[in-house]
Design a binder for these strands. Structure first.
Length: 310
DNA sequence: GCATGTCAAGTTGTG
DNA sequence: CACAACTTGACATGC
């Protein structure tokens, strides 16, 4: 059965995650900074419980957790550790509740670090910052039971083979909590499915297949080929395949990269419909887009195993 | 109150 | 060469 996943935010449901800026925190003394971020982390951990309830209620099977759940956690000047926070115990308790809900509802949880997190850069400081961010997200993933931390290949730097080699070396050296969750996704500019596949196969790193990126940045593989290749990388680690779908905001003609509010069901690969897989829906109308897609594709609401049928 | 400019980070391609 | 595009919204500030 296919499960559709919501990415980070809601459009209609009144569920909002809080944030702050480094500029603001720098005006406070250290205890002031910690008091501020502690409150934000506490609020966000409560909101995450609510978010899972809502995702379940809506009949979705997956949720992508926003990277700044703990705002500005890895910032070099104003970053912090969970145990420095006055509300650390309550925050941990809330995240344990999230994990419990995830299991009750049969949900899948994931992380998608943003474009600053990449393992192919020739610059050591970029790689070091990326490792910091991955360490943070793996720590969260461990606490809430998320099985995926998904990143892109990063930059090419004029030599894709050399960049891929750096990527391979960095992945090989990752600590287990990151390595066991790390996935690679084809992007819309640099790395295609065909580029990433050899590395994914060699290192047993699953490949997240984004059909929209594939259409923006083709590699000669058909959608059916890329789907099959992706499924293989998940099968080799005994886990459920993972896809991304979105529709272009301005049509496929000029600049197809920006995402539309909703998904045109014609863009949804028919090959996916019969699989047991997760599909993150990247659409600006968020849960409204998933509900509409569910209807358009005649997909049933997601249910945990053993959950009553009404 | 409400409008508005600003927000940590990397890389690529555009204008 | 600067700037937008990448999941974009929410915060802090100043009127």
């Amino acid at each position: 059965m296919l499960r559709l996943g919501l990415c980070c935010l809601f459009q209609q449901a009144p569920i909002k995650f809080r944030s702050t800026t480094a500029t603001y925190l720098k005006k406070l003394d250290r205890p002031g900074q910690l008091a501020r971020v502690s409150q934000l982390c506490l609020d966000n951990s409560n909101t995450l419980v609510t978010a899972l309830d809502e995702v379940h209620q809506l009949g979705f099977g997956s949720f992508r957790v926003m990277s700044p759940l703990f705002p500005i956690f890895t910032h070099p000047q104003v970053g912090y550790q969970l145990d420095e926070l006055p509300h650390a115990a309550q925050i941990r308790a809330n995240l344990a509740t999230v994990k419990l809900r995830k299991e009750q509802y049969g949900l899948r949880l994931s992380f998608h670090p943003d474009q600053f997190t990449l393992l192919s850069s020739p610059r050591p400081e970029v790689t070091a910052a990326s490792l910091q961010e991955l360490t943070y997200q793996a720590q969260l993933a461990e606490m809430i039971g998320a099985d995926v931390i998904n990143i892109h290949g990063g930059g090419v730097y004029g030599d894709k083979a050399a960049a891929l080699l750096r990527l391979e070396q960095q992945i090989t050296a990752l600590p287990e909590p990151i390595r066991s969750r790390l996935t690679l996704e084809n992007d819309d500019i640099s790395y295609t499915v065909a580029d990433l596949l050899p590395l994914c196969t060699k290192l047993s790193i699953p490949l997240v297949y984004d059909a929209h990126h594939h259409r923006c940045n083709p590699d000669g593989l058909s959608i059916a080929d890329a789907t099959e290749a992706c499924v293989q990388t998940w099968r080799q680690v005994g886990r459920e395949p993972y896809f991304h779908i979105s529709s272009p905001k301005y049509g496929w003609q000029n600049k197809p990269r920006p995402h539309a509010d909703f998904i045109d069901s014609a863009d949804f690969p028919a090959e996916w419909l019969t699989l047991n897989a997760t599909v993150d829906v990247e659409a600006k109308a968020k849960e409204l887009a998933i509900l509409r897609l569910q209807q358009d594709l005649l997909l049933p609401a997601w249910k945990a195993q053993g959950e009553a049928d009404d």
